[in-house]
Each structure stands twice: as structure tokens, then as C-alpha cells.
Design a protein around this nucleic acid. Structure first.
Lengths: 216, 216
DNA sequence: TAGATTGTTAATCGATTAACAATC
DNA sequence: TAGATTGTTAATCGATTAACAATC
């Protein structure tokens, strides 16, 4: 990492996790080094793009040699902030919230589930992987007192905006938003949206379009 | 829709679901017409982009008037293929698979859950919203015999590739892939990836970066 | 008709790809 | 050293924004 990481486009950032995944797999397979050319064939992107992407963060390679897989893997991990731990909570403990709470891989990457919340008395008090589901009323205090960085919003869009505002007021740093609504939070609070139905509609578009083309 | 919808960029397509959502909300709020200017302020994009996007599919507006909300909403729905029904199955009936199976909104958009599959004997035989979870061995036959368009893959990446290949061989048209692996399917089979951990890493990057900037 | 606003062309901006000199 | 491959500049491509004539 260099001093100047500002202004790196979201296009580049969006590709980092995929590089990270491929490099992790190469490392696990015992591969020591790889050239941008070989990686490009594996990942089906251009070698040019790979080199440009990495060079946004400084030089990780060596002329005539390529990239050291282990080193590059770790550096990208650092860029992504995976060398640190982040405490997170899940707000909305329905099916999706509980599914995410059960997903163990997040822990491996340094994301630690500290609490879950819901307003449904039937689920309050039960646990997911040892983490208690608490009533919504306790959320604000909990965020303040437990050094919570990230909140995962898996609740209906009607309540999502209000909850997000409360979280913002209590010092949350980032929101992973699964509610089907755009949140409008103060600059400085990072929001990453996962709009599942949008994703399904995109699939539907491509499916429909392809069919029509076949009919022509 | 015009005859020539080929070559529409994925950038445009990716924005359609968001237009659809805003227009649906406007319609529900009883708004009859809207100008690209007003919509641009609401959605925080440029009016130019809105007009360009819509004009990819032909003219939906009227000079001096703007766009009729109801009409535009329906037209975008059609473009997205939401005027048709699609049968889908869920392969992998763990927490995430069951969460998606319980998500009722898909039904409202014409996506009909016809079957779920798993290899775990503990869940086979149980139901999600009346839909039975069947053993994996029955998947191929089921796809062939029940006019299944879309398969949702919510299973570990180790089995995802093999299952996707089987689905392809049995005539699946589209795959909504939640497994953390890139599928490599014959051209013509649409794939939409939802890589949740990639999304979380992006959030982590932005969070980490913002912090570093503050420290400077 | 006059005013408003689209549809569309032109200008700009940014991202991707190509090329190659630097260097291991 | 010669060969390989990066880092980086330059060229191309595509997407976004601006401008405005067409027209309701």
C-alpha cells in the first residue's frame, strides 16, 4: 500500500475481492508465483487490467518474475482491511438475518458477530451461534457500548430508514443494507447495498432478452 | 420496446430495477407524471442519464409533459421480463436457501418456487411455504419435467460447479449463483452472481480507507 | 401560441486495452 | 547476458454529461 490510495475507482475496488479469491485458491494449491498473463487466462480478464489494477496500490510484482502469490494475496487482504477485525450486528433476525448470522466464513475474515436484534417477541431471547437476539430497544445502547463498526440491515424497508438513522446517530461506521430501499446517511458512513430483487430482475432481463433473440 | 434491444450495456440494465422501484413507489403514491428533472432529483442521478437510459428502449415520454408514471412503470416491468412467469428451484436448502424460499416478493414478480433440493437427509422431506425439499438425485429429472427456467444455487462452492453443469445439461436457462465460485457455463445460459463475501469486502475496503483518511 | 420537456447529437470524462521501455 | 514480465505511458473504447433542436 502506498500513501496515496485516494481516488481509486469503485470499478477497481469491486474487482479486488475476486483477485483475493483467486489468489487464495492458488496459494492453497501451492502455487508460488504467477504472471499477469497466466492470471488473466485463469480469471478471463486482460493482463493489462490486472497490472493496472495492482499498480493503483504500488508495485507488487517483479519484472521477469511475475507476482508472488502469497505476498500478493496478503497485500490485497490488507488493502481490503481483512487484517483487522470488525465488530458487527445484525438488525432484523428473520430468515435472511439468521442465515447471515450462521455464515461462518465472515468470522474467518475478521468480521465478528456481536449481537442480533428484532422486534418480534417470538425470536427475542433465542440465539444464533451463541449470539443472543435482543429487542430493538436495546440496539442503540449496544452499538455505543460495544464498539460496533458495521450493522447488517435485514429488515423490511418500512423500518430500515429509521433504524439506519438511529445507527448513524450512535456512531455506526458502515451499513450492509439488504433492505430494498436507498439509505440516505451522512457522508462518512459507508453503505453497501445488496438488493436481491434487483439482482434477480437483471437475471430476468437477460433471460428474457436472450429468448427473444433466439426467436428472431 | 423497440425491435433493436441488442447491445444494451449492462450498466443500463443494472439501473433498470432501481427505476422500476422508484416508479412503483411514485405510482403507489398516486403520482401521475414526472419529468426527468424531478426524477433525477429524487434518485440522485442526472436527468441526462435518465433520458438516455429510457431512450435505449424507445421513447416513453412526451415533450412538454414528461413521463406517465404508470405507463413507464409497466413498460420497464415488461423490459425486465416481469410480465411473464418463471418457474425456479432452489438447490441447497441451508439457511440461505430457505431464507430465499421464504421471500414472498419474488412470487409477486412472477418467480414461482417449484422445488427445493438438498443432500442432507435431515432437511429432505420438510417444506418451505408448501414446497417440498427433495434429494439431489431428483433434481435433473425435476428440471426436465417441470419447465424450470431458473435455478438458485445456495450450496457450498465445492459442489456448485458440478451441480451447475448438471443443470445446464438438463436445459436450465438461467442461474442465480450465491456460491462463492465462478461458474463456467455454455453461452446462452444466463448467470447472475451474488457473491456476498465480495460485497462485504468492498464495504470493508471503504470503511478502512475512510478511517485512514481521517487519521491523516 | 409560449413554455416545458423530451429525444438526440455532440462534448467530455473515465475506464480499458495496447504497446513498449525499464528492469529483474 | 538474454528472456521474461512488470510498470507505465499512450491509444482506444465506452459511458456519462451537456446542449439544443424538435415537438407536445
Amino acid at each position: 500500500m502506498t500513501e496515496n490510495e485516494k481516488g481509486i475507482s469503485q470499478a477497481v475496488i469491486g474487482r479486488l475481492p475476486r483477485y483475493f479469491r483467486y489468489l487464495g485458491e492458488l496459494r492453497d494449491a501451492g502455487v508460488e508465483r504467477i504472471s499477469s498473463q497466466d492470471l488473466s487466462e485463469l480469471m478471463k480478464v486482460t493482463a493489462s487490467q490486472i497490472r493496472q489494477d495492482f499498480n493503483n496500490f504500488g508495485g507488487f510484482g517483479q519484472q521477469g518474475y511475475g507476482y508472488n502469490v502469497e505476498y500478493l494475496y496478503r497485500e490485497i487482504g490488507k488493502i481490503l482491511g481483512l487484517d483487522q477485525t470488525h465488530n458487527f450486528i445484525i438488525v432484523g433476525s428473520g430468515n435472511l438475518g439468521r442465515a447471515l448470522g450462521n455464515y461462518l466464513n465472515f468470522e474467518r475474515r475478521g468480521f465478528l458477530l456481536k449481537g442480533m436484534f428484532d422486534q418480534n417477541p417470538d425470536v427475542i431471547g433465542s440465539t444464533v451461534r451463541g449470539v443472543k437476539i435482543m429487542p430493538m430497544e436495546e440496539m442503540e445502547r449496544f452499538v455505543r457500548e460495544n464498539d460496533i463498526d458495521i450493522a447488517v440491515l435485514t429488515l423490511p424497508k418500512t423500518s430500515a430508514v429509521g433504524v439506519a438513522d438511529k445507527l448513524a446517530q450512535n456512531g455506526i461506521k458502515a451499513i450492509w443494507n439488504f433492505a430494498h430501499v436507498d439509505l440516505n446517511l451522512p457522508k462518512g458512513i459507508q453503505v453497501e447495498n445488496v438488493h436481491l430483487s434487483d439482482s434477480l430482475m437483471k437475471l430476468s432481463y437477460n433471460l428474457t432478452r436472450y429468448r427473444k433473440e433466439q426467436e428472431e
